[in-house]
């Protein structure tokens, strides 16, 4: 006897509702967060590839860049300039990148260049980066204070939950905040530009050559100081963009940016330190795991499962307070089973 797979209209609607709920609370926020982490991890991984140390000041560099952008935004708002539906912060972004670039080049000249000339071991660079972190952190708190700052303006939603419900007739809404859409668009542009630069331009190729084999690169006449300067400039841009997007999406608080170090490093290591593609994959992997595990899946399962199987509890696997534990556990598992990362980074 033939069995026909038959889904009633009600069941189909339930499945659609389940998917929309999942998209609304997990997929959309995790995509935005993943893009922010990926941009941060790209900065860490580039410094690792070219300068060969883990930069602990990266979180605070992001905070510094964002701070300048916020100050610029306030200035522009006071002058009555706005970008229409887009956040004013986008106009202030170049200012933030320029200021961060100056800071990066300044610290490189004052701090790191000395150790580079001495060929110090990597861990000395790491400690120096701790000092830089202290100073940057102090500077940020000194200028803007340790409190929360919100600086998002322009249109709040690309699609609001209500519009979506009216449009589709489903029970559940799907809201896409403009900051989330903006994050993804900007991240795609930045990453595309970065890969074009690294793979197609002469300077980008010289950077990759330097990263692969320093001695050989020197023999071929590549100027190491020039490579280093360009790396810092790119890192300044990446950090400022990542920080600003994160601040627009959530809010700006210096301590939160320091805490972002852990997921960012986890992303870079999971993908393989020194490997830009890996950093992006790592960022999304960490973000999706973190959001899925800390979101209560009750509603999704209620729609997706038949009534008999519906869960009683919230099905929140881990409280949001432990979101750092997620990055940490992923990091440990990768270190245990694949210390070079999923995409074969450089050394163990």
């Amino acid at each position: 006897m033939d069995r026909v797979l038959y889904i009633s209209r009600g069941e189909l609607m339930d499945l659609l509702n389940a998917f929309v709920t999942l998209a609304n609370f997990v997929i959309v926020p995790a995509t935005a967060y993943g893009a922010q982490l990926a941009l941060g991890a790209l900065g860490v991984t580039l410094i690792y590839g070219i300068l060969r140390f883990s930069n602990f000041a990266h979180g605070d560099t992001m905070a510094f860049g964002t701070m300048v952008v916020i100050l610029g935004t306030w200035g522009l708002q006071a002058a009555g300039v706005s970008a229409g539906p887009l956040p004013t912060a986008l106009i202030a972004l170049p200012l933030g990148i320029a200021a961060t670039a100056l800071l990066m080049l300044g610290t490189d000249r004052v701090v790191y260049r000395f150790y580079r000339a001495k060929k110090a071991v990597p861990v000395i660079f790491v400690i120096a980066s701790l000092g830089v972190m202290f100073i940057t952190n102090g500077l940020v708190r000194f200028v803007i204070g340790p409190d929360d700052q919100r600086f998002a303006d322009g249109a709040r939603f690309l699609i609001s939950a209500r519009d979506f419900r009216d449009m589709t007739g489903l029970d559940e809404g799907l809201a896409i905040r403009s900051s989330q859409a903006l994050t993804v668009v900007v991240a795609v542009i930045v990453v595309a530009a970065l890969f074009w630069f690294l793979n197609r331009t002469r300077t980008g190729k010289s950077m990759r050559a330097y990263s692969d084999n320093e001695d050989l690169a020197l023999l071929s006449g590549i100027d190491p100081e020039r490579v280093v300067v360009i790396t810092w400039l790119i890192v300044a841009a990446l950090a400022t963009v990542a920080g600003t997007l994160y601040g627009l999406d959530k809010s700006f608080k210096p301590f939160t940016y320091f805490q972002l170090l852990l997921p960012i490093f986890a992303s870079a290591i999971v993908g393989g330190l020194g490997n830009p593609l890996g950093a992006i994959a790592g960022g999304f992997l960490i973000a999706f795991t973190e959001v899925t595990i800390t979101y209560p899946l009750k509603k999704v399962l209620e729609y997706a499962l038949p009534e008999a199987l519906e869960p009683e509890g919230l099905v929140q696997l881990l409280s949001t307070d432990y979101k750092f534990a997620v990055s940490f556990v992923i990091l440990l598992v990768v270190l245990l089973f694949r210390p070079t990362g999923l995409f074969a980074g450089r050394s163990v």
Partner: peptide
């Protein structure tokens, strides 16, 4: 690598 201990 020495940095991994730092991050862990």
């Amino acid at each position: 690598r020495s940095d991994y201990l730092a991050i862990a």
